[in-house]
């Protein structure tokens, strides 16, 4: 109950501080531009250079899905990072928590309430953008997509904001808001570069670099698994893997296995657990 009271306050803040409507408005602009681009390219592909090979036609459409989801991945990541970067630190800096924590509420309830609020907010946003992108590609290009595969993809996609929110709420216990935001952005960037390196080079060393960066920050690896799932890769493993390989750093290359998804879950749990423990110990 107290967790929800704290979470509701965060949601009120998101709405009252115009973060919600600003995000919605700019997302509509992004989706409109994306729709426009998909529509134009889809129309030109159909008239000027018809794709006779069904696999080529499928991949051509799927490229647009990979572009859309990759952009959605970036937007969702930055939203999660900057929404949650100051959730504890800014309230310590301003003195807001000094008035809240002496109330008869346990510190873990405050921490969990904030984590829950940002996770739900970023998660809902991620789901909205994901389905909007999928819907645009499906409707405008006719790309055949399996609903159950799309749901699996959506589930994996939700891990990305969840990881970042968990990391940022934890980071906000140790770093000021700006430093925490920079830390989150750089870590996310490191994960991306690691994934790129792994996919553009066949050298084992590069593969190890990608693996290590995905352990440090699993978001990029989760993105690849999400894209693989969304295209139905896990339903048709051999074909899925082949298709996935065609998208290069935006969706191709090695796909993280189920053990990695478990690792992501443990990563989230560890971040939340450390945060709960540390917040309970911290002097304000």
């Amino acid at each position: 109950m107290m967790v929800l009271t704290v979470a509701r306050m965060v949601w009120t803040e998101i709405v009252r501080k115009r973060l919600f409507w600003t995000t919605v408005a700019l997302t509509v602009v992004f989706l409109a531009l994306y729709l426009f681009a998909v529509q134009r390219v889809s129309a030109s592909a159909g008239s000027d250079n018809p794709l006779d090979d069904p696999l080529d036609a499928y991949l051509h459409r799927a490229v647009w899905l990979s572009i859309g989801l990759y952009m959605a991945n970036l937007i969702v990541a930055y939203l999660a990072i900057f929404s949650a970067a100051g959730t504890i630190s800014s309230e310590i800096e301003s003195g807001l928590l000094l008035a809240v924590l002496p109330r008869p509420i346990r510190r873990w309830q405050v921490y969990l309430g904030k984590w829950l609020a940002h996770t739900v907010w970023s998660g809902l946003y991620a789901a909205g953008v994901y389905w909007a992108v999928v819907g645009i590609v499906r409707v405008r290009t006719g790309l055949p997509l399996d609903p159950s595969a799309l749901w699996r993809g959506c589930g994996v996609f939700e891990l990305i904001p969840c990881v970042l929110v968990s990391l940022m709420v934890l980071g906000s216990l140790f770093l000021p808001t700006l430093s925490n935001g920079v830390m989150g952005t750089l870590l996310f960037g490191i994960g991306m570069i690691g994934g790129f390196v792994q996919r553009v080079s066949a050298a084992p060393t590069m593969s190890k670099v990608g693996f290590v960066t995905s352990l440090i920050i699993p978001t990029n690896a989760d993105y690849y698994r999400m894209f693989y799932e969304a295209l139905g890769g896990s339903s048709l493993p051999p074909i899925g893997a082949q298709m996935s390989a065609r998208f290069g750093p935006f969706g191709g290359g090695p796909v993280p296995n189920n053990a990695f998804l478990v690792y992501t879950g443990l990563y989230i749990a560890l971040c939340v657990g450390i945060g709960l423990w540390r917040f309970g110990q911290r002097d304000l």
Partner: peptide, 20 residues
């Protein structure tokens, strides 16, 4: 918790939610 239920505290340097 019982102690905190029965006390009111005004911090020296504080701010309340200015969006409320």
């Amino acid at each position: 918790l019982e102690a905190r239920r029965r006390l009111g505290y005004l911090p020296e340097l504080f701010r309340y939610q200015d969006w409320l």
